[in-house]
């Protein structure tokens, strides 16, 4: 299939992920929300590494920052670092078993959380509690389902 078709599917998936990531939750539930945008970025970086465009990624990150109302550039930076690690290692990770991939995703999302927390600390909003690792854990557990869903979408719409 052609490029614009791929790009449309990818854009649409990110729009959906952003919708899910702003759905209002209260209290502790907010910590239990998987980082949908990060999971999708990892998925696309692993399955279609050639589709990753630094500028688009940066714009996506800024968009997420506008959504969350945080410091502009925070998610742009953390997502770019996550994708950098993905692009360095996608050949190996593709051959991992699901369990190994879950651990890999856990550390990637944790990395992103740590960068976000560092940016928060510039404003004075950081947390020192281990709650910070909770979104990483939930995202890692959600990873197999994301892969299942996305690979069925990829097969259905012939994204390649």
């Amino acid at each position: 299939m052609n490029d614009s078709h791929n790009r449309m599917i990818i854009t649409f998936s990110f729009l959906l992920a952003m919708l899910l990531s702003v759905y209002p939750l209260s209290g502790l539930w907010q910590w239990l929300r998987p980082q949908f945008v990060t999971l999708l970025v990892i998925y696309w970086a692993l399955s279609l590494p050639q589709s990753m465009n630094v500028l688009m990624l940066w714009l996506l990150g800024c968009w997420v920052d506008l959504l969350s109302g945080g410091v502009l550039g925070q998610h742009a930076l953390s997502l770019m670092l996550v994708v950098y690690v993905c692009l360095l290692s996608y050949q190996r990770v593709r051959s991992y078993s699901t369990g190994q991939q879950v651990i890999y995703v856990f550390f990637l999302v944790l990395l992103q959380q740590l960068i976000n927390n560092w940016v928060h600390s510039l404003v004075g909003r950081e947390t020192s509690s281990l709650l910070l690792a909770l979104p990483a854990l939930v995202s890692a557990l959600a990873w197999p389902f994301v892969v299942l869903l996305m690979s069925s979408i990829v097969a259905r719409y012939r994204v390649s």
Partner: peptide
């Protein structure tokens, strides 16, 4: 109409 998705940030829309 909305709550900031970041649990460290208490902002509403």
């Amino acid at each position: 109409i909305g709550v900031s998705p970041d649990p460290l940030m208490h902002k509403v829309v």
